[in-house]
Nucleic acid binder design. Structure first.
Length: 103
DNA sequence: TATCTGACGATAG
DNA sequence: CCTATCGCCAGAT
């Protein structure tokens, strides 16, 4: 199926897309949260996979982070930039004020 | 239909 | 706090 064509999306993809579409600027959610909200608890990996393939489908992937609050290691710069633009504080590739490392 | 992979999550060390 | 292992679901080959 084509990630850009919703007509080919499965129930899971439509549900996940609905959750992602329901997010608003500054809102952060984990893959597990999206999976639960979509009605597919435990499908965190599937959510990540969907975002990865649908990076050009208009998914607010930057608002989705890991349960540890970590950003995408391969896109942390892009994601951090977008999050900061929405008022989200990102430090050291992590959301929120940097706490531990250092010192 | 079977097997492998992957923007993950949680627990153990 | 970081790394390693197991379990989870969906998609691709």
């Amino acid at each position: 199926m084509d990630p850009l064509d919703r007509s080919t999306w499965t129930d899971f993809e439509r549900a996940a897309a609905g959750v992602l579409d329901g997010l608003e600027p500054g809102d952060l959610v984990t893959y597990g949260e999206v999976a639960v909200e979509a009605g597919y608890p435990g499908a965190a990996r599937a959510v990540g996979s969907l975002l990865r393939r649908g990076s050009g489908a208009g998914f607010p992937w930057w608002r989705v982070i890991s349960a540890s609050g970590k950003l995408l290691v391969d896109h942390e710069v892009e994601q951090a930039c977008r999050l900061r633009a929405e008022g989200v504080v990102v430090s050291n590739g992590r959301v929120g004020p940097t706490r531990q490392p250092g010192r």
